[in-house]
Every structure is written in C-alpha cells, then in structure tokens.
Write a protein that binds this DNA or RNA. Structure first.
Lengths: 292, 292
DNA sequence: TATTGTGTTCGGTAATGCCGAACGCCCTGC
DNA sequence: GCAGGGCGTTCGGCATTACCGAACACAATA
C-alpha cells in the first residue's frame, strides 16, 4: 500500500499523523526498528532464494536508499544474509541461533522434548507442543515421527484455537465466557468443510473434549490431516499448553482414535506432573471439568 | 561479521562516554536498528528468566527511556516478551518462528534432516550438520540420539574451525594457504589441553583427515567429548559443510572410531550426492585430496 | 541503441530518536 | 515512621539522524 506521504504535511502544527499507514506511531515506538522487523518478516514470507532490494523497498513502502540502510544493518547483525549473485537478501543464521536459544529459555521446551521424542516414536506421527498464549496455541517444538510425512507445521506463531486439536484441548479447560471471548476476537473462520464455525457447536464439542481429556481434529484444519491433542497444566492450575500428534486421516480406524487419545493424555499428564501441576485425571475428580 | 560475536555485551561494564561511541556509524547503518539487535543479543545471553529494563539499559549503554522505546517496539513485534511480574524482558516466540523458517529456507536443512535422523538413530549419538561460512562451521541442525546425554550445542553461531570435527573436516578440503588465512584470523585458541594450537601440527592432522575422509575431535573442544565429522560438497565442487556425531569419549574403543568415521563419511557422501556434488571417494580418486 | 531494470551514492531537511529530569511506586532498612 | 534507593513510566526539548529524491553506473532486455 506504499503510503506516499507528503500530501497532508502542510499543517505543521498538527501532531505527526503523516507517518503513513504502516505502523502505529506511539511515542514509545521506534519507527526504524519496527520497519526493520517488518522487513525481516517480509523476507521470511518470501521465497527461499531471497528477495532483491527493490522487492524489499516495494513491499516495505520505503525508498530504496532507506531500505538499503535497513537491510545493511540487519545483514551486519547476521539477521539477514547476502545471497549472491546480484545481492539478494535472505534470512541469516543469527535467527537460527536466537530461535534455538528461545526454545531453550522457555521452560517448556526442555521439559517437553523427551516426551515428544517418545510420543513420536510410539505413534509414528509428528508430535508437537504448544504453549497457551492468551488462549491461542503457539507451537514451540516439533518432533517428526520415524518415516512420517513432512507436514507444513510452522513454529512460533499463533494458530487459530478452534481448528486444531491442541487449541480445542486448551479451550476445553476454560470457562464458556472465556471461550466466547477468545473465539469472538479470533473469529471462527472455516479452514476446511469440516471446521466448526458455530460457537454453540464448538462449545458442545468442548464438553466432550473436557469429558474425554483429549481433543480430536478430524480434518478441521487441513484436508486429510488428523490430530489428537491433550492439555497440560502449570503449578497454578491453569492450562499451560497442550501436546498433540498429527498424521494422515486414512490411516486410523475409529477404535484407534480413543486409544491414541488416552496415550496423548497420559503423556500430557506427565508434562503436568513435571510442571508441578495437577494432571487431567486429578482435576477431573476434583471438579467436573472447567467447562461450566 | 557475524552477530554472535560472543563478546562482552553481557558484561555490565561498558565505557559509555556519552552517546554514539559504541557503534560504527557508517552512512548506511541505522543506529537504532543496530542497537535493537544488540538488545536482542543481550537478552539472549542473559538468564532464562529475563532481564529488567534497567539491566538492559545498563548493558546497552543507553538511557532507560531510549531502552524502553526499543524494548517496547521489539515486544510489539514479538521478538521480545514481557514476562511478568515486574516487567522482565525475555525472548519472544517470533524468534522461534523466524529461526524455524530460516532452517527451512536454507536448502541444506531439509536435505540433511532425514540423514541426521538416521545417523543419530544408528550411532546413538547427537548428529549435527554445519554449513561452511567463510571457512567457519556454523551448525544449523541438531538431532539428539535416543537416550543421548544433552550437550550444550548451540546452533546458528560460528564455531572455531580447528577444535571441532566438522571444522577440521572442512579445513581438510582447502588449500594450505586458505587454512593458514582462516586460522590466522580465528587464532588457534586452546579449548582443552588436547586442542591443537600449532598451525603445523594442525596441517599434519588435516593431511590425515584428508586421507581418511573423516575428522576426529578427541577431547579437543571439550573435556570428555568425542566427535567424528565428514565434509560434503556442493554442485560446484567446493565444500558446502560437514556433518558430525558427538558423544562421550569413554564409550568408544579405538576400532570403533574407524568404523564410525566410515559411517559418517558414507552419510556425508549421501548429502553430497543430493546436492549434486562429488562424494569424497569420487574426489579422492580424481585428485590426491585438496590439501596440497 | 533505447529502455527498463538493477544497486549504489550523496545533499539537504525536518522528522525523530534520544537524553535528562521528574514522577509515582514498591521495597529495604536505618 | 520516614529517608533511601531501586524500579518503570512520562514528558519537554534539542540536535541528531534517518529519511527521501535525484543522479549515477551497470546489466539485461527489446
């Protein structure tokens, strides 16, 4: 949307509003840094072979000289990378380092990794763990099962809560009001023909999830993909996140789903114990589920 | 220059001397962005529970208000995270996403991951792959073997070339002049009592490596740690990187080392083939090794 | 050759990032 | 109790600095 400024700058008595549509200019926002981070995201969303400087300038809506200064600075920091020939910018290895450190600094990462390894090996599916970020699942670790098909399962970004097993497992631990709030702000967007897009249907589904202790995503997020997830709890009793396994839909007969759900729930309980939180079964006997 | 630099940024003593004395201000360097990236590195090098704003201001050498603006901007981008209570800043999940995307955009990542999985499973050791970054090894992927001990093996940062199996495997593919240049700039720093710190001893060692097709790190990088690595080659015939396995020294009898070396070399050759490059054995027959 | 695309350099300017000082708040401890 | 020092936050105001546009050199098209 290349916000061309310069038109409304006539009245200089006005406080700055000519900064364009690109960023909310609070007093406590450094514009060049915000732009730099947008630049990194543009490169991340671009092709693997990288983007040219002109591409970046167009996408960012700034002049080439400004973009060059930003890109050079980020390159010097190792966040971007000059891929020759004809300087193309792609993501730098510093991001691998920072991402790796982040996963190790999050307490859940180190706790869950051995659990995921076991789970992936046992189920031959891709095992993942998500943290609960204001009600939204954010996957932070992934372990592919032996010989499993590669799915596109991005890490570190918010996923929709209503169309994934991990998300529904987390929602099922909350009050109906909170579920309505979260899904209201997120919107129950359809991802496939089987996605639950109605809040009442979803709440009914969550009641089942709460009773079972595990959630099922039956092609609700992507065609042909099947997930089973279960939540775990922190020392304060609140839902800290969920683990889930992902595989191909056709491979699983119905009776296997329940078995798989119990398995995932058992592993989630192990995570809860390591976190000092109560496991699902302990919670289930204490109260009749949180969904009231 | 890489962003990692492992320097004294975490140390609190910085000669502040007023403002802009800390960064090289070329015309094509955006100061606030460079500062922001330094801020991220400070948090990355800090404790897992995060740092307070005052800590950041001290380490960065800027006023609290400036630091607050930077930190707020980075937090809005998801690069940093507010960990309550008493606002502490730690790394945000956006870095997990960016690191994950970076690993997938690097062509080697997707190619090597299945190889590493097999290798880790076969050897019961931690398998890693490094790319060759101007002669320095940068590990970009790691797969822990089943039941293997957790090592501290950071990803995405330059390692010393002379004290790791992957580094020596890479050096052994280069000319003596280049090895001298690289090691001259890096310095043959001692990491343990067994680290090779003499350039001639190193070159002699590299001749053996070149003959075998694999390199051994026998407690040269860390006490009690044992590595075996082998280089692989890109379509242009140059060394693209190396794979290595890491384990506990005591576990391995001598005859196993040779066997392990041949195994790692075989897997490295597989990577070379997938990259369209010549494998070690093909190169060995074509010329008597690069180290001439 | 004309044309359009690159990436790069450099003035000039006002927007903007920066600092310092002041404020409210929570502790700790004379 | 009240001083003391830590914290995070806010704001005024100045000079820095990040920004744009124009001009340049070069490559690949037509």
């Amino acid at each position: 949307m290349s916000a061309t400024r310069g038109s409304e700058t006539a009245a200089q008595s006005m406080p700055v509003d000519g900064a364009g549509a690109d960023d909310a200019v609070d007093r406590y926002t450094v514009r060049s840094v915000a732009r730099a981070m947008r630049l990194v995201n543009i490169v991340a969303d671009g092709p693997a072979k990288g983007l040219s400087l002109s591409d970046l300038a167009r996408a960012l809506g700034t002049s080439k000289s400004t973009t060059l200064a930003l890109a050079r600075t980020l390159t010097a920091a190792g966040v971007l990378r000059d891929s020759r020939p004809g300087p193309r910018y792609s993501l730098g290895t510093a991001l691998i380092r920072l991402g790796d450190i982040t996963r190790h600094q999050l307490p859940l990462g180190d706790i869950c990794r051995p659990v995921l390894l076991e789970l992936a090996d046992l189920t031959k599916m891709t095992a993942r763990v998500a943290i609960c970020d204001e009600g939204f699942p954010v996957f932070i670790e992934r372990v592919d099962g032996p010989g499993s098909i590669r799915f596109h399962t991005p890490l570190g970004q918010r996923e929709v809560p209503h169309a994934s097993a991990a998300g529904k497992a987390m929602l099922a631990t909350m009050t109906q009001d909170r579920v309505r709030t979260i899904c209201g702000s997120a919107g129950l967007q359809a991802r496939t023909a089987r996605t639950i897009t109605d809040i009442d249907t979803l709440l009914a589904n969550l009641t089942v999830v709460s009773g079972n202790g595990f959630a099922v995503d039956d092609e609700e997020d992507a065609e042909g993909i099947f997930c089973v997830g279960a939540a775990f709890f922190g020392y304060d009793g609140s839902c800290a996140g969920a683990i889930s396994v992902t595989g191909i839909k056709g491979d699983l007969p119905d009776w296997r789903v329940t078995e798989l759900g119990r398995t995932v729930r058992r592993y989630a309980d192990r995570v809860s114990e390591m976190l000092g939180g109560a496991s699902y079964s302990a919670r289930a006997t204490a109260s009749d589920g949180a969904l009231a």
